[in-house]
Design a binder for these strands. Structure first.
Length: 450
RNA sequence: CGGAGCGUAGCGCAGCCUGGUAGCGCACCUGCUUCGGGAGCAGGGGGUCGGAGGUUCGAAUCCUCUCGCUCCGACCA
């Protein structure tokens, strides 16, 4: 993309409503625009990040055999009356009446609807196990939206639902989701720690929340410091293997890690004192096993091998996709702006033309732009007629992890500059070497998508 | 929902107390000069002050109502 033809309304000054770094930077970098309390437009740059996050979520879900579909944002109240949640959910649910005076609602979640889909089409245990998911906008009428997209009223969420014949199978699905989530967050450059949590209105007995440690997090968390040493890495997992998934669950959940909802001082005290940590975290996902809570009242049953009809065991799993955009910034920024992890950056690399209009600089930039794009890179080429300082400031603000700076001075020796946003370090090298270096840097990112 | 505050140009703000029909910085447009870390000078365009009503000769300024937004608290992917 040529910046001169892009739509990137960056702000020099910080809008007064933004209190935390991610909100401030998303506004300043021209990623979002607030349209009402807790409701945002995603401007081109923000939209690209949102799509990258979404893409990673899709890839990791499908890697585990989970099947995507799409359910509507508006739902009939009848389904929710069936489960009993129409009355239970309270003010947070946005209720709508259509012209025929029928009660609708803007879905805050989709357990009822997915259960309805399931019961309409699945009758035999032979169709199990089954995990369906979608990435769709949700609405929860928060009393007090704040922190930009981190606590909006309208938000994009991946929600998945597993259907299994037995509790054992459903618990395997639970563990499998934990594995997919660990991989998902790592690809985004985040460390998200699974913590034992409270199930809240979704209900159920087994649940973990994934938290990214950040000072601005809304939850207080307590954990054994050993847990932050764990990484999933690029290990290969057979998602059908009960043992392998179980082993990962045990590895990542055996140490003390709880939110304030489930925190137990007596148990925490058993962690060696030097390893006890109290911090704040941002919730970026949650997994639940809730048995037959919905299948039973809503008649989601299958005929088993013995010919008897039994309610299926279910779980649900959510990732806050739009919230992640904020959480990633919260965990990756400095005083100059955002620092995108390679996995989610809106553009892989930025090209800064230091002397727009200079024939040799222009053509060197054009060549880099063309060749990098041909290699599959998403490139932002700053071809505006601006001074160097302004171009650098923009690049730093929007946080592209790598920048190639092209100027007449270096070009005389066939050199350009490759700069890391994170370290701030620059290296001079030929354009060909810069491209080769970028290919090496992004190799793991591109490989992870396969 | 309880408490606090704010709505004046695209953004950030001043003016309001002590009524006299709007100002600053950034951004934007034009020209010249600059040109490796958000340039300088000169010129220029844009708002009737969230909305409605009231008081007054006169309202951004005072009063009433209303809408929106933000912050603190209780609740939440």
């Amino acid at each position: 993309m040529r910046l001169s033809r892009y739509f990137l309304p960056v702000l020099k000054e910080t809008p007064s409503e933004a209190q935390i770094a991610s909100h401030r930077l998303m506004l300043r970098a021209g990623m979002i625009k607030q349209q009402a309390a807790g409701i945002y437009s995603w401007l081109p740059l923000g939209y690209k990040v949102l799509k990258r996050i979404e893409q990673i979520v899709h890839e990791e879900q499908q890697r585990a055999g989970h099947i995507p579909l799409l359910m509507p944002t508006l739902q009939s109240a009848d389904l929710w009356r069936e489960s009993g949640r129409y009355d239970d959910y309270g003010e947070e649910m946005l209720r709508i009446t259509d012209r025929h005076k029928r009660d609708l609602l803007y879905g805050p979640t989709n357990e009822e609807m997915i259960t309805d889909i399931f019961r309409s089409h699945v009758n035999s245990y032979k169709d199990l196990p089954l995990t369906l998911y979608h990435i769709q906008w949700k609405f929860r009428d928060e009393i007090r939206p704040r922190f930009g997209v981190m606590r909006g009223r309208e938000f994009l969420m991946k929600d998945g639902y597993n259907f299994d014949l037995t509790k054992e199978d459903a618990l395997h699905a639970y563990n499998r989701h934990l594995v997919t989530y660990l991989r998902t967050y790592e690809r985004m450059g985040l460390q998200a720690i699974p913590m034992r949590a409270d199930s809240g209105p979704i209900g159920g007995e087994n649940t973990h929340e994934f938290l990214v440690l950040a000072e601005t997090g809304e939850s207080e968390v307590f954990y054994d410091s050993e847990i932050t040493d764990l990484t999933f890495g690029d290990r290969q997992i057979d998602y059908d293997s009960v043992e392998q998934c179980q082993a990962v669950l045990e590895e990542f959940t055996s140490r003390y890690a709880r939110t304030d909802e489930t925190h137990d001082e007596a148990v925490f005290a058993q962690v060696p004192e030097t390893r006890r940590r109290t911090a704040r975290g941002i919730e970026v996902g949650q997994i639940f096993y809730f048995g037959t809570k919905y299948s039973e009242p809503m008649g989601a049953t299958v005929v088993g091998p013995d010919g008897a009809r039994t309610p299926v065991h279910m779980g649900s799993h959510g990732i806050g996709v739009s919230r992640l955009a904020g959480a990633i910034i919260e965990a990756n920024h400095d005083d100059k702006g955002i620092i995108w992890p390679e996995g989610v950056t809106p553009f892989h690399v930025g090209i800064v033309n230091l002397k727009q209009g200079d024939a040799s600089v222009d053509s060197a930039c054009e060549a880099l732009y063309r060749e990098l794009s041909a290699k599959g890179f998403d490139v932002l080429y700053d071809d505006r007629d601006e001074r160097a300082g302004a171009k650098f400031a923009t690049m730093d603000l929007i946080g592209l992890p790598w920048r190639i700076t092209v100027g007449p001075r270096g070009l005389q020796n066939n050199k350009v500059e490759l700069t890391s946003r994170r370290s701030g370090l620059s290296e001079e090298m030929s354009p060909a070497d810069a491209m080769a270096r970028l290919e090496k840097i992004y190799q793991p990112v591109f490989a992870a998508a396969k």
